[in-house]
Every structure is written in C-alpha cells, then in structure tokens.
Design a protein around this nucleic acid. Sequence first.
DNA 1: TCGATGATCTAGCAGTGCTAGGAATGTAGC
DNA 2: GCTACATTCCTAGCACTGCTAGATCATCGA
Lengths: 196, 196
Amino acid sequence: MTDAAPKERLLAERRGRIVAAARRLAEDEGWEAVTTRRLADAIEYSQPVLYGHFPQGKSEIVTAVALAGFAEMEAALTDSGSVADASHDARVRALVTTYLDFADRHRATYEAMFLLPVTVPFASADTPAVLRATFEVIAETLRALPAEAPPSSDPETTAEVLWAAVHGLVALQHAGRMPPERRAQRVDELVRLFTA
Amino acid sequence: MTDAAPKERLLAERRGRIVAAARRLAEDEGWEAVTTRRLADAIEYSQPVLYGHFPQGKSEIVTAVALAGFAEMEAALTDSGSVADASHDARVRALVTTYLDFADRHRATYEAMFLLPVTVPFASADTPAVLRATFEVIAETLRALPAEAPPSSDPETTAEVLWAAVHGLVALQHAGRMPPERRAQRVDELVRLFTA
DNA sequence: TCGATGATCTAGCAGTGCTAGGAATGTAGC
DNA sequence: GCTACATTCCTAGCACTGCTAGATCATCGA
C-alpha cells in the first residue's frame, strides 16, 4: 500500500485525533461536555482548524464518531455469531448480549449512533455501507432460524423487530427507566420470544 | 372544589401557558427551537419570570411537558385496552398501535418523555405516579394473557420487553432508521411474537 | 401617605457554534 | 537568496444560548 503524501497523512491523522478526542470526552463526561473549544484544546490548534476537517461543523464530528461506532459494533456482532455448532438459541443470545454489552461499554458512542440526530441518510442510496452491514448481521442470524422456529413470512421484518427490542432495552435501561436487577430476565425473555 | 385564590390561580394558569408554549414550539419546530427567550415572548413576560415557576430552569420545563405527556399516553393506553370481549391478540395489537400512534402524533412530547434527559427519577420512591401508571397499563394487558399463551414466569418482565420493543420501534422509525413501508408488518410481527 | 413586600424588567454574564479577516508559514520561480 | 503568492492557522468577534443580580414598578397594609 502506498503511503499518502506526508501532508495528507498528517491531515488524516489530525482528523482522526479530533474524532478520538470527541469520543473520549463524550464517553467520559457526556456529549454536553464536547465543545468545539475543548476539542481544539485537545488537538492543540484553534477552533477554525476543526472546520477545515469538518466544514459542516460539530454535527459532522458527531457523525464521524457514529460511523466509527457502527464499524466496531458490526465487527463485534459478526464475531458473536461465528461460534461454530452453537444452537440457534445460543446464537440469538450471543447477538443480543453482544449488542447490549457494546452499548453499555460505549454509551456516548451508542448515543451518537442512534439517539443524537445524525446527518447521514439511512434507508437510501446514500446510506454508508457500514450502517447496512450492521443491520445485516442481525438479519442473517434470524435467517439462520431452523425450520421449527416460529413461522415468519419475512425474516427481514423479524430482524427489524428484534433490533427494535434490543435498541429499546438499551435506550430505556440507559435512561434509568427499567430496574437494573431484572436485566438478565429481560434478556432471557427476549431470546425466548424470538426462538421459542 | 374551592377555587384557588385569584393570584394563585393566575400563577397556575401562567405556568400552564409556559408548558403549553414549550410543547407547541417543540412539536412545530423541534426542541432546538425552544429557547427561554421564545417562551418568554410567547407568554409576554420577560425571561426571569420563567425561573419564578421553574427554579431549576429549562430542564424543569421539559420535565413538565414529559409528565403531561405520560398522563395523556396513560389515558390513551387505558382506553385502548378497555374494549370488552376483544381477543387477547386484538388487545395487544390495540395497545401497540395506540402507543405508536401517540408517539407519532406527539413526536416532541414523546422525545421529552424518553429521549431527552429528564430530571425525574424513575424506578424509585420519588417516581411520579403517572410514570408507574403508564407502565402498569402495559403490564396489565399482558397479565391478562390467556392460559395457552406462551409461558412466562413473570408477566412483569414480558411487559418490560414489550415496552422496549415498542419504544425501539418508535425511536428507530422517528430517527429514519427503518423503511416506513414495512411499518404494518413490524406491528404484525410484534403482536405475533407476544401472543403466539 | 408611606414604607415594606412582591412582581417584573433591564442588562449583563459565561458559555455555545461558527466565521471574517489578518498574521504567520511554506513554496515556487526568478 | 529573495520575492510573491498560496496555504495554514490564529485572533477577535458575531449571534445566540441559559441564567441571574440588581433596579424599577406595583401592590398592600398600617
């Protein structure tokens, strides 16, 4: 692989440091602590330099954090489904558990991925591949349902409903709207509903 | 019922106008358009008057919108479950459909209820009764499951998972992350999973 | 009628995202 | 090596945000 020109490599590196700084600040202190002044301090340049990399401003930085998060979540979900010889029940459980763990360990990143308004179109031709890929992992796990699983005319729709349920658990648990001590029971019930 | 003193009634009325103005602005233009300057203009007083009613500032106004929303949603959900002689399938479907309709018709209010950080504790002794009441309607519908419904050791947990799934549909659909044309299929699949 | 109290306003603070114009630095050509 | 031009970065400031201190106005009771 050829190296980029030194100047372009330095620019790309600095862009990466901006995104990393945004993510770190958000994970440590919440998105409300992520300001353009603090990001500029973190990379030791002035504010206008941020706008050189992200002409659409702060929301474009948040989008970059979200896209990186989708890539990591897709990798984690793909790994979770790759255990050979696992029962289907075990594979759905691994998917759900991996998703919830990722969202818990990267709360602010997850928030950027789903909760903050992100400027990237989703169900359209412009949708970045990494967004489709993440959903595809969920759909693929359900397509692999054995024949005795509950009939569903459309595994795509079942995948959407499973995704909604898991996402809903994340959002309501993070918002403190569900008792934390029943978390494992909710996972058990969710897996039971989708595999019984 | 005795009337409040005229002064106290005028204060309560003005407080209600602040909350109504916040909700209307949010529903029309989004929460980012709801500023303390615009709320003050809407009630034709200066900004500090807002802080007389809401000493904890703007987030307390958002909380007030959220609590009003919970009360309305609880009433709507209670009505949806009150159809006599309906099959259980029909009652779960009515609950899900009513919930989704409410969230669609009051997007900004729903956002305040679940998405914006609200300062009210949830699963604790301080939780306002209206929050518990809303969840209770969902739990009650599932407690009424006939004996041949899928066994669940704990209808409470099933209610939490149903709520998570419906909430997830709202959040992902509002965020434009699910194809709108398959909305009815997702509702069908959700109802099937919880009543099959 | 006057003083005390309550209600409301004005003006401003500290912070936000963002940008215009100037300064500093780098590069190319002569 | 110097000059002119291009690029990069900085300073300073704008318009806006949530919020509040102190001043002003209105009301009420003695």
